[in-house]
Each structure stands twice: as structure tokens, then as C-alpha cells.
Amino acid sequence: MEKKLLIEDHIRRNKLLTVIVCTLMALLFISVIFAIGYIFFPGNIFIALFFSIPIALVYVLITYSFSVQTVIAAAKARPANPMNRDEKLLINRVEEMSIAAGLPMPKVYVQDSDNINAFATGKKPEKSVICATTGAIRKLNQQELEGVISHEMSHIKNHDILIATVTIGVVGAIALIAEILFYSMFWGGAGRGRKGEGNAILMILAILFVILAPIFARLTYLAISRKREYLADSNGAYLTRNPEGLAMALEKIKQDHPQGKPKGSKTVAPLYISNPFKSMSVSSIWSTHPPLDERIRRLRSM
């Protein structure tokens, strides 16, 4: 029998796990740089820093510059209409949750889609957006909708959009650096200055590591994404003091099989409350979201 955790304990545990995984990501990035230094500049591996750091910075800046408007446009979302009763109720739920979280009121958008889903975006809480699908508005009752909004509000409060942006940037940078290395080996051959036999194995290991690094980086990023989902679930429950609302909403998402293809871009998938591009029951280390059943179980254990 698992010990029953308080909502506060869930939050603390998830925060700690996120810190650990983010540290892993940073360590991975640093080791990639040193491995490259070892392969190309055996004399002074610090030279690698000079070209790796700018590449990483540029990459992070590019992902960072994707504005709220880009995401909204990709999702084909429109501002919620307060004249429509259902959408007005959505605005009301968002207002309530922003008060509970002590955050400024986000802009409310609606995406035309039969799927039950919602996402939050915006790098700062002051300029954030919460968007729900028409399916969510129609199929969820107010208690469930409140649960979903509380989850999104927690993403905003935890700066998850920023974390996702930066980690995606680092993953991209590692992939790019590995690719550059791969091609330069192809053209010029690695370790020109190196003749010693004893280092051959080490050299192969370093090259292998750099080639595999993008995969590790991607897995670490996905692990971070899943941890942040759990954290947003428990923080959401803390805001509403009603874990059952979100649990019931996730239950409905699980049983919902809408027609038609999901809209929007895959890069924003981690922002949604459940991944719109994957079948819900399957989950692995390649998922952006934890399995729904496990999320429901944890919410019900609070």
C-alpha cells in the first residue's frame, strides 16, 4: 500500500525531480562539448567551447523568439466570445483560477476541434494565453473544466513554457552540433593531430557518445516534460482543492474518440493537457505526457 501523499508533498517531490533531470540535461550538454573538444582539439579541448556555446545560444534564442501569436496561429485559435454562454463560462473559470493562483488574468482563446484539450502559452505570466478546444467546452462540465484550467494555470505559474522553450533549444543545439561533427568527420576525418594507438578506443567512444547525444538529450527533454505534467496536475489540484475535477476530466479525455485529425503544430504538443498527436493509452519514454491512467491514479491518491 502506497503512502498517501499530501498535495504539498506531490508538489515538492515533482519539483525536486525536475531539478535533477534539468541538471542531467546540463551535464549532458557540457559532456558533449568536451567530447567534441577531445576529438577535434586534443591539445586544448576548451576551444570547443568557443563554437558550441554560440550555437547553443542562437538555437535557444530562435525557439525563444516563437511568440504567443505563432502558437495561436498554428492552433488556428480565436479569442473567446463573451456573448456565447459556453465561452463566457470558460472565461469565468479562467478568471477564478487566476485569482486562486494570484496571477494576472491570461487571455482566453478557443480552438475549433472535437477533441477535449487545452493548452497554455506565453513565456511570462503577465503575457500568457489559455486556449481550450470547443470539444472541451462542450463535453466537460464546469467542475471538470475548472480542473483542466487549473492544470494550465499551473503551467503558467511554474514557468513551464519557458522551461520547455529552453530545453527544446538545448536539444536542438546538441543535435546540430552532433550533425556538424558527423559531417566534418566525413569530409576531413577526425583527430588529425592524433597518432597514439592507446587513444583509439577512447576516440571511438567519444565519437559514439556525440552521435548518441541527441537521443539522450531528447529522452531527457521528454522526461522533464512528463515531470512538469505531474507537477501541473498536483499544483492544479492545490488551486481548486478538488483533485477529482481534473481526474474526471482526464477520464473523459481517455474515453473520448473524436473524428478528424488534430490541428496545430507538433512542437506545441507538450503545451497541451494531453498530447493531441498520440493515442492516449500508449505511453513510453518517447511520450511528452505521462499515461492518463497514472495521472488519474495520482490525482485520486491526493
Partner: peptide
Amino acid sequence: FLNLQDELSNTENKIAYSRQHFNDS
């Protein structure tokens, strides 16, 4: 009447949540 009912339940929830936030603070 329907609008007022929605509006009133909205403010009622907001009062409850702002109290909760007060106590959290």
C-alpha cells in the same frame, strides 16, 4: 436572469478563491 445567475456564481467562486489565496498568502 440566466446571465445574472452565471455572473453571481462567478463572483461567488472568485470570493472563495480569493479567500483561499489570502489564506495561502
